[in-house]
Design a protein around this nucleic acid. Structure first.
Ligand code: SF4
Ligand code: SF4
Lengths: 165, 165
DNA sequence: AAAGTAGAGGACCAAAATGGTCCGATTTTG
DNA sequence: CAAAATCGGACCATTTTGGTCCTCTACTTT
């Protein structure tokens, strides 16, 4: 449960790294691979996936590379992860074309559907800018103004977790 | 992401079913398998895991079977699921004995750890009694009194999800 | 225009996780 | 003792995952 695919991790790392470079510059896969220690071949396909998802833009040819297509604050966590997670559901029957022979008798389906929807909504407002300031994660009481789009998840992450422990 | 293992589903279903029988009675695996349509062999091992976790009690010998070890309201969702999910973490480096060669350079580790902790805390207060009243999941405004141990997750699940859509 | 750079994308493979079956041992009832 | 039931493992087939490789195409630079 909860575990994200390796490609998702690479995607998150790539977005982090791209966010640290100048917004109008692009970085080649080779450079990005060196900076992040992610195998170039895998990183290449991950970037392709992110491009298809509209998260990054690509510039072909000599001197080309990848760059973020918009500001980190406007890139949602789920945008980055979605392309590499065919299963954003807790149970099989929640995703299309995955059937289950126990559909009618199963008294677990409805509760899990609601649970799934709730968890997903928690992530809706989580944007990638939260991933860029490492110190916020360990400091307590750093609570900032917050972005208009963010939900309680992003807010509570900013406030760190040592508070209510 | 989020997907629970099949055994976890079976475990949840089993707990649901056991909760519907009389508290002091025990049900055999064979009966339980017929009631839930879960393969008997698999169900057997699932029940064994649940017993090890202290969620169910077992009575051996003829006329024996399984029963809940305590009331559904006192059985947490994570108690049921934990034995079948070695990975309750979003990234590998969060679980013991799973190393990653990028540990130091990785700027994703800390954010993910915090995110992980938050999500986990959301589930902490979710108890199995919520899974027993199917109508609560589709009805809106059924908000009840709530149990002392439950967190916002359980409360919001009770209130259904059509509210804030 | 030529040359070289860099992304696009499919084929392929090895290792691991998953889901499920089977079988023998043990304990209790009758 | 025999039947009924849990206990607990070994075992296997399939799927999923993570990763490599190779070719093609588009673009930039010279
Ligand atoms: S119908 Fe029940 S058993 Fe089948 S995938 Fe959905 S929750 Fe799981
Ligand atoms: S250190 Fe980074 S790359 Fe390695 S498992 Fe943790 S988050 Fe993933």
């Amino acid at each position: 449960m909860f575990k994200v695919s390796r490609k998702s991790e690479y995607a998150l790392i790539a977005v982090q790294q791209l966010a640290r470079s100048l917004p109008d510059r692009v970085v080649s896969v080779a450079d990005l691979s060196q900076q992040t220690q992610v195998p170039a071949d895998v990183l290449a396909k991950v970037l392709q996936g992110l491009k298809r998802a509209g998260v990054v833009r690509a510039v072909k040819g000599a001197g080309g590379g990848y760059g973020l297509s918009r500001s980190p604050a406007e890139i949602r966590f789920l945008d980055v992860v979605q392309p590499f997670e065919d299963k954003l559901a807790m149970v099989s029957c929640q995703m299309p074309s995955h059937e289950c022979e126990r559909l009618d008798t199963c008294s677990l389906r409805d509760p899990m559907a609601a649970l799934n929807a709730f968890v997903l909504r928690q992530f809706e407002g989580l944007t990638m800018d939260v991933f860029l300031v490492p110190h916020q994660w360990i400091a307590v009481g750093t609570r900032g103004a917050g972005h208009p789009h963010e939900t309680s998840l992003a807010r509570r992450l900013r406030a760190s977790d040592a508070a209510s422990g």
